[in-house]
Design a protein around this nucleic acid. Sequence first.
DNA 1: TAATAAACGATAGTAATACTCTTAATAATA
DNA 2: TATTATTAAGAGTATTACTATCGTTTATTA
Lengths: 227, 227
Amino acid sequence: MRELLKNIQIRVNERIYLKDPESSDLGRSIINHSIKLIHELGIESFTFKKLAFALNTTESTVYRYFENKHNLLLYILSWYWGWLEYEIVLSTMNISDPTDRIQKTIEAISDPLKNELVHNYVDLKGLHEIVIAESPKSFLTKEVDLENEIGFFVNYKRICDRIVKNIQEINSEYPYSKTLALTIIQCANQHRFFASHFPNLTNISSEGKELHAFLSDLVLKTIQNNK
Amino acid sequence: MRELLKNIQIRVNERIYLKDPESSDLGRSIINHSIKLIHELGIESFTFKKLAFALNTTESTVYRYFENKHNLLLYILSWYWGWLEYEIVLSTMNISDPTDRIQKTIEAISDPLKNELVHNYVDLKGLHEIVIAESPKSFLTKEVDLENEIGFFVNYKRICDRIVKNIQEINSEYPYSKTLALTIIQCANQHRFFASHFPNLTNISSEGKELHAFLSDLVLKTIQNNK
DNA sequence: TAATAAACGATAGTAATACTCTTAATAATA
DNA sequence: TATTATTAAGAGTATTACTATCGTTTATTA
C-alpha cells in the first residue's frame, strides 16, 4: 500500500509556479536540488544562481519555472502538506474511534518519517527539516493575504480542517477546535526546532520522541468532556 | 506604579549592538523609527537606507549602532521580552496562588497592551505587532546556535523559566513543564497572526479577546493533577 | 520527414541591497 | 583652546533578484 505513495502525484496550486515542475525531468530536478540546497543553506542564503549552478544550467531556466524563490518555497511546502495529508489519511484509514484517530494523526504530524518512507525523487527528510525551519517564513509576510486569497495555502488548510472535524467528533462542545487544531500542527514543528537548538527550553529530546506524548496528552485532556 | 515603567531601562545583551542605542538621542531615534518602519514594511523590505532617510541621516550612521538589520531586529525583540518580563512581574506581584498567577501571566502574554501602556519613546503597539509577525525569523536562521551561545535570547528564556516554575508550583509532577511554557508564549503570538490573516483557521477573533480563555483552559486542564 | 513550436542555454544588463571606507564637519570634554 | 568623539556626506564594491535577447536543441504535429 505504501508503495503507492512513492509515485503519487501531489496536487499543488498551479498559480504558485509558472511551469509545472512535475511536467519535466528538469522541473523535478529543480525541486529535488532546491530541497537539498534550501536545507543546506537556509532560504536566506539560497539563490537561483546557486541552484542553477547545482543543476548545471542557468538562472533564466529556473526563472521559467518559478517567479522567485519565495514561490519555490511555497511550492515545496505546499507539496509537503499535500503529502502529509496522504500520510494522515492512510494511517487513520479504517480506524473508527475518533480518539484513536486523533492519536494517529498527531503521530503522523509529529513524526512523519517514522515509516522509513522513500519517495521517488523527493528527499522527505530534508523536506521535513525545511518545514520545521522555514515554514513560518512562508506566511509571515506582507503579501500573505493576497497569496492566501489566490489559494497558496489550501493544502495546509485541508489538514487543519481534518483535525478540526476529528476534534469535534470527540467533543462537539469544545469551543476552540480550530485553534487547537492549528496548535497541534504548529507546535509539532516548532518544538522540534526548539529541541534541536534550545534544548534547555523544552522537555522534548532532539529526536523528538516525546512530542507525540506531549501533544496527545495536551489535546485529550483539553477536549475531554468534563467541565 | 505603572508610571515607573515609562522610564524603565530594559537590559539588552550588549553584544547585539555596536553602540548602545539607549546612550544617545540618535540611538533612541533609531529604535523608535526602526519599530515604525519594520512594522510598516516588514523586516524583508526594511533597509538601513530607508531608516537613514527617515532619520534624516545616512546609512553609515546607522551602521555605527548595529552591524546589520538582523541584529537590530534582535535588539528590539529582546527589548520586548525584557519589557514583557516587567509586565509579568508587576501583574503577578503579591499573588500567592500559583493558579491565579499563571492566569495573570497568560493574560500579560496574550494581551500585553490592555493597560493602555505608554512608553517614553517606544511604540509598544507597533512593537507588539512586530513580535507577532517577525519574531520567528529572529531564531529560524542558520546562525541561531552561535547567537544563542552569545546570549542573544536570554530575555526570552527568562520569561520561559518563570512560567516553568509557575507550572511546577501547580503540578510538580507534570513532565512537560518547559514544553508547555514555550507553547503558551509561541501560541499567543501565533494565534494572533492567524486571527488576523487566516480567520477561518481559528476561533480567535481579530482582537484576540478569546486568546486568554483558550490558553488558560488548555494549560490548566493539561496540568491538573488527576491521572 | 519536414515544418514548426516549445524549451533550454548562454550572455548581457539593471536596479537595489548590504555593506565598507574615507574625509570633512560638528559637538562634547579636558 | 586643544583634543577627542561623533556624525554627515559621499564614493565604491560584491551580491542579489531579477529582465531581456537570441541562438540552439528538442519535441510535436502536419
